[in-house]
C-alpha cells in the first residue's frame, strides 16, 4: 500500500476533526439553539457530533489525498505522531476543564 495515501493530510484531518468535536461540544453547551439543531439533524446531539467528526475526518483526508500524495520516505511519522498526540491530549484537557468549570460555576 506504499504511497497510496497522503499520511500528512490524514494527520491534519484527524487534528481538525478532533478540534471540531471540541468546538461543537463547547458551542452546543453554550447555545441551546445549536444543541436543538444537532438534535433535529440526528435525533441526539452526540450522534450528530459523531457523524460530523467522521465526515470532517474522511472529507479532509479525501481532499488532501486528491493532490500530491507525498512520498513516504519524506513523511516524518514521528513528528506528526507527536503533533497529533499533543493535539489530542490538549483537546481532551480543554473538554475536561470546560465541564469542570461548568460544574462549579
Amino acid at each position: 500500500m506504499l504511497d497510496r495515501i497522503n499520511l500528512k493530510g490524514m494527520h491534519i484531518a484527524a487534528i481538525v476533526a478532533m478540534a471540531v468535536v471540541v468546538v461543537l461540544t463547547i458551542a452546543a453547551e453554550l447555545s441551546e439553539g445549536l444543541k436543538n439543531l444537532l438534535v433535529l439533524v440526528a435525533f441526539h446531539h452526540w450522534i450528530a457530533k459523531s457523524i460530523i467528526a467522521l465526515v470532517v475526518f474522511v472529507g479532509i483526508t479525501w481532499i488532501m489525498n486528491k493532490g500530491d500524495k507525498g512520498f513516504i520516505d519524506k513523511f516524518d511519522a514521528e513528528k506528526w505522531g507527536k503533533i497529533t498526540a499533543i493535539s489530542a491530549v490538549l483537546f481532551a484537557t480543554i473538554i475536561f476543564i470546560f465541564y469542570l468549570l461548568e460544574f462549579f460555576s
Partner: peptide
C-alpha cells in the same frame, strides 16, 4: 466527547501501519 477521538485515531494508526 473524548471518546469520539478514538475511531479517528484508530483509523490513522491502522493506515500508518498498512502504508
Amino acid at each position: 466527547h473524548v471518546f469520539l477521538f478514538l475511531p479517528i485515531l484508530s483509523i490513522l494508526a491502522l493506515t500508518t501501519l498498512r502504508t
